[in-house]
Amino acid sequence: MEIVFAFAIGIMAGSGIYLLLRPRTFQVIMGLSLLSYAVNLFIFGMGRLRTGAAPVIDMIRGDDPARYADPVPQALVLTAIVIGFAVTALLLVVLLAARGLAGTDHVDSREPERP
């Protein structure tokens, strides 16, 4: 399982970083989304992978910490997901405004000179 999880993070981060290096604003937004998936999974992974151990206390397991997944990375990632949405929205609007002002969707707000 760990290897698949690592593979998932690697491939999403790789695709995301590739897109962040592209010249068009839409590519950058998509890249940011993918990279934030990868980073969220990465932080979540710091609590180690457990199945069937959701940190919701029930009568059977009692309050024995060993029987639950680590709730701290989960709490961190939960807020990160929401903030990630806010950042995407802000970036999208900034890029739309830049496109409206500059007339191009290039990240530098101007088309590169063609050789």
């Binding site: 969220n40 979540f44 992978l49 457990r50 199945t51 069937g52 151990a53 959701a54 940190p55 919701v56 639950y68 997944a69 989960q74 990632v77 939960l78 997901i81």
Partner: peptide, 8 residues
């Protein structure tokens, strides 16, 4: 979901 994080 798989790794015990339903809230996430």
């Amino acid at each position: 979901v798989w790794f015990s994080a339903p809230d996430l």
